[in-house]
Design a protein around this nucleic acid. Structure first.
Length: 423
RNA sequence: AGAGAGGUGUCCGAGUGGUUGAAGGAGCACGCCUGGAAAGUGUGUAUACUGAAAGGUAUCGAGGGUUCGAAUCCCUUCCUCUCUGCCA
């Protein structure tokens, strides 16, 4: 959520920036400013009356103490009149506040100045492409065939147990997942991230804090009986750890990593995009989150990109880094880099990580602040990135490394997996 | 899941209707004292909104109610602890 004070002072800038995200209703900025003015005006009015009421109440207290009952009664009647005139204002105020909040929550974050212009994924800017795309033999097959061949994942039984999109990992497939999670967490903690293992369900306040609510309600599984949501990413519980906290400045940056299962309803997907492990309702992911001092956030963002790039290099996968254009960025992000790996048999790029700087968009909702040297509290910046999403990594590892003798695993996984090859 | 107890500032802890944003203590910060430190001592020590400022408003888990006035009374709800039950 954008800060109202900032909108008030930079209305034109806000409109201009929002437009690059192809947010449809730029006029809502004007609505917000008008509502904000109304709210503040009504606040002053009601608070003035309240101040008078409070003062009178104290006077009544003193009169009662002195035993001057009659004088107290007269005061009481005065207060009663003031209160009746206040009631109407209070109703107006709470209505206006609610409207203001509803509008404010619908505004997306403002894209950073380096965000490329564009509306569709095709207009994302390729910042870097590296690694070697393998030349596969004529007999090479996509990962869903390899999965069958080596009996790594059973989609049919997953569907039997739960439904489509809930893969059942099995044998070496399950072990490869474990090896990857283990390796990713080790890599992150070695870089100074503290490891967490979070709850897989969160309450409404947490889902709201990171921006899943109210914007993306339909994308989460909702346990209505208990008012809980299955997490779409560990980002949600992990970032919310510091909700409503004031952090000591010297504790910044706070670096956290977590493995979790992720649940996404992903309504409306279809076609070859959803084959095999390309898109599923439940998947494993390791996430990194940082809470940082505002002046360092873009530097940290770049460090996180480098950090995640290191994983892909270690996994020996061909990858590319995209700077997302305004139209393809998420609601809450100010700047996002996506990582994609090249899936050689499918001959397509698959997104495996998204590294974003949210600036104060999330922390304003969560009220995550620090107290600076000047004694003023201000919001920290939050950032996060996947490191990494497992299914597509697995798909690429299988497809790109397939040989007649099995799947040759990258060196870094040998110890974790306990073997050099899946055969 | 049932029974009971409780949630107050950074922490401990007092407070059952009237200048209580909140006693007292600890911690922390700054100063004095000291050769230096400890001890001692003085001052300060929440957050948000609003206002140029003075100030004002709100906040004692959360939400609602009673009252001229609520940390204190009532209702709802969340959480923690103890006991019982159940269970990986």
């Amino acid at each position: 959520m954008l800060q109202i004070g900032f909108i008030r002072q930079n209305a034109d800038f806000v409109k201009e920036r929002i437009a690059t995200k192809y947010f449809t209703d730029v006029n809502s900025v004007d609505t917000i400013i008008a509502l904000d003015e109304e709210v503040r005006k009504l606040k002053v009015e009601t608070e003035t009356i309240q101040a008078a009421v409070n003062l009178a109440s104290k006077e009544i207290g003193m009169l009662m103490a002195k035993g001057e009952k009659d004088a107290a009664e007269i005061k009481k009647q005065e207060v009663a009149q003031q209160k009746s005139s206040q009631q109407n204002l209070t109703t107006q105020l709470s209505n206006a506040e609610k409207q203001l909040h509803d509008e404010l929550v619908k505004l997306p974050n403002l894209p950073h100045s380096s965000v490329p212009k564009g509306k569709t994924p095709e207009e994302n800017e390729v910042v870097k492409e590296a690694g070697i795309k393998p030349t596969l033999s004529a007999t090479a097959v996509p990962h869903w065939e390899l999965i069958k061949k080596y009996d790594l994942v059973d989609f049919e039984i997953g569907a039997k147990l739960t439904g489509s999109g809930f893969p059942l990992f099995k044998g070496k497939g399950a072990k490869l997942q474990r090896a990857l999670i283990h390796y990713f967490l080790d890599y992150n903690t070695a870089a100074g991230y503290t490891e967490y293992l979070p709850p897989l369900m969160v309450n409404e306040a947490s889902a709201y804090g990171t921006g899943q609510l109210p914007d993306k309600e339909g994308q989460m599984y909702h346990v209505t009986e208990d008012g809980l949501y299955l997490i779409p990413t560990a980002e949600v519980p992990i970032t919310n750890i510091y909700r409503d906290e004031i952090i000591k400045e010297e504790s910044l940056p706070i670096k956290m990593t977590a493995y979790s299962a992720c649940f996404r309803r992903e309504a409306g997907s279809f076609g070859s995009d959803v084959r095999g492990l390309n898109r599923v309702h439940q998947f494993d992911k390791v996430e990194v989150v940082q809470l940082v001092h505002p002046i360092t956030s873009y530097q940290v963002h770049q460090q996180m990109v480098d950090h995640i790039e290191g994983l892909l290099i270690a996994l020996e996968l061909p990858y590319r880094i995209l700077r997302l254009c305004g139209g393809d960025m998420s609601f809450a992000s100010a700047l996002t880099y996506d990582f994609e790996v090249y899936s050689a048999a499918q001959q397509k790029w698959l997104e495996v990580s998204s590294v974003s700087n949210f600036e104060t968009f999330q922390t304003n909702r969560m009220k995550i602040r620090f107290k600076g040297e000047d004694g003023k509290t201000q919001l920290v910046h939050s950032l996060n990135g996947s490191s990494l999403a497992l299914p597509r990594i697995m798909a690429c590892l299988l497809e790109n490394n397939q040989t007649d003798d099995g799947i040759a695993l990258p060196k870094v996984l040998h110890t974790y997996f306990g073997s050099n090859v899946i055969s």
